[in-house]
Design a protein around this nucleic acid. Structure first.
Length: 259
DNA sequence: ATGGTAGTCTAACTA
């Protein structure tokens, strides 16, 4: 089965792209970030017409996460969790559910704006609370998938210019990478790195300065797998194609294949 | 070279 993550940067603006992409790829599970839609505006009927169930937690203008499950392939959602338990947060960034044998945690991690800013502090507190919660989740659900827009590039292979994107830059700073490493140390493996060693494989390119055309990207969208699932991971990919379409999201979809 | 673009919603924010 294929499990995908895609930051769509507004589902309203990207519904036709999602429709085209789901129609051709047909992944069994999809996590979306930055839907930017209140729940009463979520296009669940349109997505049902594509053969997917929807689960969503959104807000106006910013953030918003959703899970899609292919109706003919996987059962419905169970044991739904919105947000990190015990972490007060008005921003809709976390949506977890059980789907058959799998536990899925969909994340839109805080961007953090700039190292040392208030938003950076919020990012580190978010990651700290996430760590403690995921330590419990992986005990409770050994077949755990944690995926989404992590807004952290794990190492220098994941950055087009490691000199510019250094230990003091947002998305690559020392504290952010340390927080991500602590998630890996819970027993969550970066599925892309289970299958590929090379650098230069990116999932996000800035809209500005022709970032995609010049391939000035970062790999910040990840699919993490617990040990039981990592052993069954037969593929990992980044689908750059939709990033080249007209009026694209600034992120490409990323995928992991489980046997 | 310290900008640039895109989305939301039409001012200014977030990324």
């Amino acid at each position: 089965m294929q499990i995908a993550s895609w930051n769509v940067n507004s589902l309203n603006a990207r519904l036709e792209h999602l429709r085209a992409w789901l129609g051709s790829r047909r992944p069994e599970l999809v996590a979306l970030q930055e839907t930017k839609l209140e729940d009463h505006r979520f296009p669940d009927a349109e997505i049902a017409a594509l053969g997917y169930r929807s689960l969503f937690a959104g807000q106006k203008t910013y953030n918003g996460v959703a899970l899609l499950a292919r109706t003919d392939a996987v059962p419905g959602f169970a044991d739904v969790q919105v947000g990190i338990p015990g972490f007060e947060d008005g921003q809709k960034r976390v949506l977890a559910a059980s789907v058959g044998e799998l536990r899925i945690v969909n994340l839109y991690v805080v961007n953090g704006q700039a190292v040392g800013s208030d938003k950076y502090d919020y990012k580190l507190r978010f990651l700290d609370a996430l760590h403690d919660w995921l330590a419990e989740e992986i005990r409770r659900y050994p077949r755990l998938v944690v995926l989404g827009d992590f807004n952290i590039a794990p190492d220098d292979r994941d950055v087009h210019d490691p000199v510019a994107w250094n230990e003091t830059s947002i998305l690559t700073s020392t504290a952010e990478r340390a927080a991500l490493r602590r998630l890996f140390e819970l027993g969550l493996a970066d599925s892309y790195r289970l299958r590929h060693d090379h650098g230069g494989a990116f999932s996000w390119w800035d809209y500005r300065a022709a970032g995609f055309r010049r391939d000035l990207g970062l790999r910040i969208d990840l699919v993490l797998l617990s040990g039981a699932l990592a052993a069954r991971c037969s593929g990992a990919a980044i689908d750059r194609e939709p990033r080249g379409w007209e009026r694209p999201s600034d992120h490409a979809p990323v995928l992991a294949t489980l046997d």
